[in-house]
Design a protein around this nucleic acid. Structure first.
Lengths: 273, 273
DNA sequence: CGCAGTTTTGATTCATCTCAATTTGTGTGG
DNA sequence: CCACACAAATTGAGATGAATCAAAACTGCG
């Protein structure tokens, strides 16, 4: 539950540059693949303003060029579309360039659990490495763009570039640590603590991306928040209302403003009762 | 929540061979490090009967010898002792040779969450990679022995041995997938379903290690089970009693025998109410 | 053999879920 | 641009599963 600190402002100012081309889509998957072109190359890792969040520090020019070559394609995912689904063969991991995703796991009986929300600069798809099939679904919660990192190539490059290897290991480990945080939340916290932890986490990650720490737009529904936090949507809604009554935050549907961060933090360190 | 399938019987028949030597212990940590000797080398990876669980398949003789060299030491951890603690600098990951561990995370206010139970053939410590410090505690629940895998060396070897690299990535990914399973459990299941899932998981992992699928000895207390499952120990106890009344299992303290696995599985796929 | 720690079981309380009604917001097509 | 339909969010009242508090029984360790 710790942010990488070194935040950087990040916008998709090259959006107009990237031409959106329909893929042949023999998979019936109809997502848009942006092939390697001179313009898209220019907007690759070496030029990316998410570099600091996504890549290891201290790579040489030559090494970054190799990365540019590895990350040969992008994919645009429209709001509501899947980046991948549980069961699909695993081939690549994805770096979010712009947008917002959720990942979730489904049980046979229909119950599902949102396992995470991911934003720009974060990596998706590492669940698939273990079985060579994805084990969860990744869904865009807003129109998004990801860099496709073919995993086989990442492994090749990792063997060449020590810093890349180490960085990737850290990214995977961070995912494990993050999951432990969620387990702690689900296992030991009451509803309001969970929501407080959730809001603080979002605030922190927003900050790391150059957005306001106090103000943000939730991309997910109350139900999705509830699924993530192990609560019913009504309980989430009540907790929001309660926080608003207390004056900690202001809530207008999906627009959240943190008015006083103190009590939220307090809730975590000194739970009432 | 899927087992690696390819189970293998595994026993610590070389236990008498390894001489137990007190470490100088300048850390005040008083754990036992077994230095590299001819006998311990003989009992290294190349000879280990956990090989199938722990190592990648298809390594050459030369490659396995490199592994033997990397895994230069063992540590014995007595029941109740820590293998590592949250906050300690991260230097190595650990392969459990014999024994049983729990990992847990502590909150400032004293609440703690057991994040996992680990048995022979499983890897501990990957949480530490991300920050270079361990983020959880690993405690032996019975007298145990681990192989110390210095992480820097693992990264070096991973760059040389493709299969090792890939295998390690799979191990980390499996940890992520496992955590997602726990999140699902904590987020969506009722008490009895959680316990059923827990028992089935233990049974499955026992089987993969050549033990009986029906019968096993719990190494942890009801409280630790409860912490892992997000329940109070009384609730765990009641669920055990209930399963026994129903005739699914027989419980004698820590000795569990699964009498009818059907209803337990049913509980997961077709939750009552 | 006795004591501390663990487990079981019971009675009660409480937080969250469930069910239900209402309000608010969103996207679509006339 | 507005009206409509549908999705999302809020709020209330009541049901319920697990927590809490408490006491007794068991276990195994020294």
């Amino acid at each position: 539950m710790r942010a990488s600190g070194e935040g950087q402002r990040c916008r998709n100012e090259d959006e107009g540059v990237l031409t959106q081309i329909k893929s042949p889509s023999d998979q019936g998957q109809n997502q848009n693949v942006i092939p390697l072109t001179i313009t898209s190359l220019k907007a690759a890792c070496s030029q990316c303003n998410l570099r600091e969040l996504c890549l290891p520090f201290g790579l040489s020019e030559a090494e970054i060029l190799k990365l540019d070559h590895m990350v040969a394609s992008r994919r645009r995912i429209k709001r509501g579309q899947h980046l991948y689904r549980a069961g699909e063969p695993f081939e690549a991991i994805y770096a979010i360039k712009t947008g917002f995703f959720k990942t979730d796991v489904l049980l046979e009986d229909g119950r599902d659990q949102v396992t995470g929300f991911q934003m720009a600069g974060e990596i998706l798809g590492m669940d698939g490495i273990s079985t060579e099939n994805h084990t969860c679904n990744a869904v865009a919660l807003e129109d998004s763009e990801v860099c496709v990192i073919p995993f086989a190539q990442l492994e090749v490059l990792s063997r060449e570039i020590e810093a890349l290897q180490h960085h990737f290991h850290k990214v995977m480990s961070r995912e494990i640590v993050r999951d432990h945080g969620v387990m702690m939340l689900l296992g030991t916290m009451r509803a309001e603590e969970r929501l407080a932890a959730f809001l603080l986490n979002l605030s922190q990650r927003s900050t790391a991306r150059g957005y306001s720490p106090q103000e943000f737009h939730l991309r997910m529904t109350r139900e999705e928040i509830g699924s993530y936090l192990g609560l019913k949507l009504e309980t989430v809604s009540r907790a929001f209302s309660r926080f608003q009554e207390e004056g900690f935050i202001s809530v207008q549907q999906k627009h959240i403003r943190i008015l006083d961060i103190g009590p939220l933090k307090q809730l975590l360190t000194h739970p009432p009762a």
